[in-house]
Simulated scan of single mutants.
Amino acid sequence: MNIELSEQSIDALAEVISGGSANESAPSIGLYRQAWRLEAWFKTFGITFGSQQESRLPATKTAIREAIFIDNDLLLKRIIESAADPRDFINDPGRHTTVVEYLNRHLFFDGFKLEVVGRSMRLVEISETAAVTAELSAMAAGINFDTVSRDLDRALRAASADPELAVTSACAVVESVCRSILVELRIDFPSKQDISGLYKAVREPLGLDPVKEGLASDIVNDVRSVLSGLVTSVQGIGSLRTHAGGAHGKEKGFRRIDPRIAKLAIHSASAIALFIIETWQLRYPDRDLRLASV
């Protein structure tokens, strides 16, 4: 994720973090933080705050520009997400909504937006998001699937800049979910632990058969076709990872895959993983699905 903030977005971010100027008569957008609190806040990111020549608001802008100068997009991403941390607005959730909307109005022109994912905020690229990835990300956060969240984040960030890595991460999303189900059900892993082998291993215990769904006879074949399509997608994602993914070395002159294909793999993997998790929750409503430590 390459983050380039406009001056307007930097101003808006500084307004939210600092709470604005102490001399303003209008209510602050963000939470008013005294200088010593701002110093402690930025210190958690390794950023120096404040000087004798600058007041709170200008010093906050300087600190943000220092983060940009460091050229660490992950650092800047953390700062933006922390500026709208919902834990800071527990006693005033309405203000949190206002802060997120205020920042998003500015971030939109930079190609980003803040989304609520589980109990935290996440900065995402507008062009890289899709409903299915957002829903999977929210569900993964809700059931504490941090590995799935990280793989999905990595895939989305890499889709344009490193599509091979994006495909590898997309594949890992499905693999993590399948492994966790096998561990929870105490089923041995298949001899071939690639995405196809793992998906095949969870199909039977999850009852991924339209006949077992109790469906009307006139749509059984239709649903079977859709489920067969999932198998084809799983195989395709696995093959793409093998032939073009970032997990293997590339010979001289290797041609990168089209970012569109990487995004298709991400969205397909997200849909598959989401379907598997929802099926688990339907089949085993009283059992938590925990992340496999493998």
Rank of each mutant, 00 (worst) to 15 (best):
T98E: 09
Q53M: 09
M121V: 08
S239V: 03
A12V: 05
P285H: 15
M1H: 03
K77S: 15
D188W: 12
I257A: 02
T48P: 04
E7G: 08
S239D: 00
S28T: 14
F254Q: 09
A262G: 06
A269T: 01
L206A: 05
I70W: 04
I181F: 05
A26G: 04
V183D: 13
R260W: 07
A155G: 07
L291V: 09
A140P: 09
E39P: 01
R283W: 04
L156T: 00
L123K: 05
V167N: 10
I143E: 11
L74H: 03
S51Y: 07
K77Y: 02
V167W: 01
A22C: 05
L74F: 00
A201R: 15
G249W: 08
I10H: 10
L74T: 11
R255G: 02
F109W: 12
A155T: 04
K43T: 11
L208D: 00
H267Q: 12
I195Y: 04
E81A: 08
K252T: 07
G238N: 04
G46Y: 09
A265Y: 01
D222L: 08
L156V: 02
C178W: 00
D258K: 06
R256E: 06
L114H: 05
S160C: 02
H243S: 10
W36Y: 06
A63E: 07
A262E: 04
K200S: 15
Y102F: 15
L230F: 12
T129P: 00
S137D: 05
V223P: 04
S28H: 13
R105L: 10
H243E: 06
A22H: 07
V223T: 13
P190I: 09
F189L: 15
A134L: 12
T147A: 11
I17P: 11
D194N: 15
S25I: 14
T60V: 14
T279K: 14
H243F: 10
I68A: 07
V117C: 03
D92M: 10
K252N: 13
P58F: 15
D188Y: 07
E81L: 12
S268R: 00
G236I: 04
H243N: 12
V124L: 15
C171L: 06
I266C: 13
D162Q: 11
A262C: 01
E24R: 14
D151H: 15
N91G: 08
A159C: 08
